[in-house]
Write a protein that binds this DNA or RNA. Structure first.
Length: 867
RNA sequence: GGGGGAUUAGCUCAUCUGGCUAGAGCGUUUGACUGGCAGUCAAAAGGUGACCGGUUCGAGUCCGGUAUUCUCCA
């Protein structure tokens, strides 16, 4: 079976069991503060499991693209070294939300594996939870009894809490799980050692392929468990491992999922997979990582220097590093794999093909940037290396290695490699210590502690903010959050006009009041589809009814910016082309930011044109056409613009202004005329192939124009209200340049004259030509004078120049080179003489300066210097 | 969110612990050589050392702040 056929057979099987097949959610998660990437099939159902969302379909199944860069058995640093771990992988899963439970889940899992894809029953083992009496958790005998009907009892293995009890986090739904393991060793080996002893022992050919989680408890923050009202089945099967098993391979990387990519890497590097272990590891690393990178870019997550984008950047860099060291690729090469990637996965994931050009550009740019970083790092390392060698030492301090890593992004293993080549090593212990300290610092700064929700009354939030600015409401629940000495509260309301930060639009602020008091709501955030209102203080009485009211000025300003974003988006597509796709958006009351795919700098004319089109639409005063809850297919047939990497429900909200039609949950003006005017204030690049424009609307434009007019008016006044300001400034600048040059020339001439006079007047004392003078010159001129004299007569020369400039006396001493060789020192001379002007100074043996506080002593100081 | 670094000529970067008028390569311009192109040689132009403030006789260099950017941790 090909991987395509395997994926399809799973979905077909669960369709036949009345499951709804849902599409894969984006790999990058946007509204969950605890998670950056989809790391399991259940992520997109988290809201349902937590009870924040309605159950639309009690039975669903899908194939989900997942990303794991840390966690049990899966450190990023391990990927590639073995044959079965990945960063990105596909997870096949089926779910039941309060519908079927263990009996059906187990029976169907068995049926699929043994009858649909026909895995030899003798090769399968299962595990069940053995219980943890100290935590009051019972053995999962229920699962055991069900399994007994399918599989001999000696193949059912007890597992401990670590392997067989699943928890979403420190709190929340949890329960026992049951894993299915497959033994794919050759028969000869299986006869020698029984598979049962190798389950969960990290054997590469006795592996877990399917985990069935039976969520039946809810864990509270004090650790106690309560039964879950609606029990949940959550299963996940590693797609790549299933392919390996069914295709008779012993490595995931030997399946048709990875081999085409690996072959292509071999072609680029001129090496063959299978010849050399280190080369093989590098090829596996690159094949795995390039999938991750390409998918995240397609999902709208570009490599960057913070958060999720940074994780992607790190993964890309790890791949480049392996290519650099083991495949001898010192120039960008990974972007060349985009073609083959599209061939392998483009069928199941069309977003890859749609975003191909962008993926290529971004990867190439990132590769080049990192190769540059490596080059700088190597230079720095070599400098340190020479110092160590010069001192005759053998070990590079961990501190230096850490600085290279921490500040310059130079990877430790490369440091080690280069040191080894030079017969040196690095103090790893010290390195780890520094790393530990860094982690401590970050952890302390980021520690967030939230207590359990306190439920005042049951219910769900109803958002009324599209229609109302204030509403009567009740508090449903609240909790306290402590973060870095700051304490605040999160409140969930029964009805709210507050828009929670989402889709780039900032959350509303406003007030919550009852008869007695008014509480400030500082922000509104969206956590797992739950609108939480942030307040610094709780009302005294939480039970009564309240009026929730948004800050209308801010909301209106935000709406203007959001609607303007849509108009600008449309105008950009008209001016630049339809390749312009939204890659990010930020809408606040102050301004708007819009990131989009485009491959070159916008010209001033293009920016003007975009502004003109958008402003024309504003003047046309297009009425907002808002469609709530329309089926996504219908919206798309209207030509509504949807975003890659965005998760949409089956029904969506559509906002239309004329020809601009977008899927959007944000708040907008009633008609475009309300925007007033839009003005683009900057255009810049934020990544390869991505441009960013920032714009302002309404009053902010007025303010800007006012300010600019003030500047012009003031400037004009300086020029006696000249009609042609630009010309006046130009003339003034060129006049200024001319004058400056004249002054410079003049001053230079004066110094030359002074020099010539001084040289002529030089007195010879004991065979040394002495020049002493007291002048009024700036320090720079004095210096020039001294050096000029030296250039003319660099023999047996002593120059002493005193100068009173700007009320401060300074003293300068210069000696010719031969006197310095004889042991005279200008610094010593000037220090001694500076006592007369109550100052100090220094310099080099041939030239020194001093400054002081007493102008009256200047003459004395000049005369006091004797050789 | 927290730490560390960087910002010097159009570009890439030097300038060790404050001190000899801030240098190099590439690029630009000019000139010479060659029949032309390419090239070689020579010369020149090009700098508020990111910005603001402070310490000092003296700051690109030290300190504080701002901006931009890189990097590590979360």
């Amino acid at each position: 079976m090909t991987s395509q056929e395997i994926r399809q057979s799973f979905l077909d099987f669960f369709t036949s069991k009345n499951h709804k097949i849902v599409p894969s959610a984006p790999m990058v998660i946007k509204d969950d503060p605890t998670l950056m990437f989809t790391n399991a099939g259940m992520n997109q159902f988290k809201n349902i499991i937590l009870g924040n969302d309605h159950i639309k379909y009690p039975r669903v199944a899908n194939s989900q693209k997942c990303l794991r860069v840390s966690g049990k058995h899966n450190d990023l640093e391990e990927v590639g070294h073995d044959t079965y771990h990945h960063t990105m992988f596909e997870m096949l899963g089926n779910w039941s939300f309060g519908d079927y439970f263990k009996k059906e889940a187990i029976a169907w899992a068995w049926e699929y594996l043994t009858e649909v894809v026909k895995i030899d029953k003798d090769r399968l083992y299962v595990t069940i939870f053995e219980g943890a009496p100290d935590e009051g958790l019972e053995r999962d005998t229920e699962a055991y009894e069900i399994w007994k009907q399918f599989i001999p009892e000696d193949r059912i293995i007890n597992g401990d809490k670590k392997d067989n009890f699943w928890e979403m986090g420190d709190t929340g739904p949890c329960g026992p799980c049951s894993e299915i393991h497959v033994d794919i060793r050759p028969d000869s080996e299986r006869e020698e050692i029984s598979g049962v002893s190798l389950v969960n022992q990290d054997h590469p050919q006795v592996i877990e392929i399917w985990n069935n989680v039976f969520m039946q408890y809810n864990r509270k923050s004090d650790g106690t468990l309560t039964p879950l009202p609606k029990k949940v089945i959550d299963t996940g099967m590693g797609f790549e491992r299933l392919c390996m098993t069914l295709q008779g391979k012993t490595s995931n990387y030997d399946t048709d999922v990875f081999q085409p990519i690996i072959q292509e890497i071999g072609k680029i590097a001129g090496l063959r997979y299978g010849d050399n272990e280190k080369v093989d590891i590098a090829m596996r690393v690159i094949a795995d990582h390039v999938r991750t990178i390409a998918f995240s870019i397609a999902d709208g997550q570009l490599p960057s220097n913070a958060k999720a984008g940074y994780v992607i950047r790190r993964i890309l860099r790890r791949a480049v590093r392996y290519g650099y060291t083991f495949l001898n690729q010192h120039e960008a090469f990974m972007y060349k794999l985009t073609d083959v990637l599209c061939e392998v996965l483009g069928g199941a994931y069309p977003e890859l093909i749609a975003q191909k050009t962008l993926i290529e550009k971004v990867i190439m740019e990132e590769e080049n940037t990192f190769l540059h970083t490596l080059e700088t790092g190597i230079k720095l390392l070599e400098k340190n290396l020479n110092e160590i060698k010069a001192k005759g030492e053998k070990v590079l301090s961990g501190h230096v290695a850490f600085t290279l890593y921490d500040t310059f992004g130079f990877p430790l293993d490369l440091t080690e490699l280069i040191l080894r080549e030079n017969g040196l090593s690095v103090d790893i212990e010290e390195f780890n210590k520094e790393m530990q300290q860094q982690k401590e610092r970050a952890r302390n700064a980021a520690a967030v502690e939230s207590s359990d929700w306190v439920v005042i009354r049951e219910g769900e939030t109803r958002f009324v903010g599209y229609d109302l600015n204030e509403v009567e409401t009740n508090i449903l629940r609240y909790r306290k959050v402590t973060q870095k000495n700051k304490t605040y509260f999160q409140i969930v309301l029964s009805d709210t006009p507050f828009y929670a930060e989402m889709g780039g639009q900032v959350g509303d602020s406003g007030t919550l009041s009852n008869a007695e008091e008014t509480i400030e709501i500082t922000d509104t955030k969206n956590e797992n589809n739950l609108s939480v209102h942030i307040v610094n203080k709780l009302p005294n009485d939480l039970t009564g009814s309240f009026v929730a009211k948004i800050n209308l000025d801010k909301r209106m300003a935000t709406a203007r910016n959001h609607s303007a974003t849509h108009l600008v988006h449309e105008a950009l597509r008209e001016v630049l082309g339809t390749h312009v796709e939204q890659k990010g958006s930020f809408v606040s009351p102050e301004n708007l930011r819009f990131d989009f795919a485009h491959y070159q700098r916008m010209t001033t004319e293009e920016i003007r044109e975009v502004e003109r089109i958008a402003n024309r639409r504003i003047r046309e005063n297009l009425i907002r056409n808002e469609m709530r809850e329309i089926p996504i297919a219908e919206a798309q047939s209207m030509g509504a613009i949807a975003l890659f990497g965005e998760k949409y429900g089956e029904t969506v909200r559509v906002i239309q202004f004329g020809d601009s039609i977008e899927l959007c949950g944000g708040t907008h003006v009633k008609a475009t005329g309300d925007i007033g005017m839009v003005r683009i204030i900057s255009e810049s690049s934020i990544a390869a192939g991505i441009r960013r424009i920032e714009a302002i609307t309404g009053e902010a434009v007025e303010d800007m124009i006012d300010k600019q007019q003030d500047v012009i008016a003031t400037a004009k006044e300086f020029f006696k209200n000249t009609p042609d300001l630009v010309k006046a400034i130009q003339r003034s600048i060129s006049e200024n340049q001319d004058l400056r040059k004249q002054v410079d020339d003049f001053r230079h001439e004066k110094i030359m004259e002074l020099r010539n006079r001084l040289i002529k007047e030089a007195k010879e004392v004991n065979g040394i030509k002495e020049i002493r003078v007291n002048t009024i010159l700036p320090a720079e001129a004095v210096k020039t004078l001294a050096f000029q004299i030296k250039n003319m007569m660099n023999e047996n020369l002593l120059v002493v120049i005193g100068s009173l400039f700007d009320g401060k006396p300074t003293l300068t001493v210069l000696l010719s080179d031969d006197l310095v060789e004889k042991g005279y020192n200008a610094t010593a001379l000037v220090r001694e003489a500076a006592k007369h002007i109550q100052g100090g100074g220094g310099g080099q043996p041939f030239f020194a300066t001093a400054g002081g506080k007493n102008p009256k002593g200047l003459d004395k100081a000049i005369q006091s210097i004797e050789l």
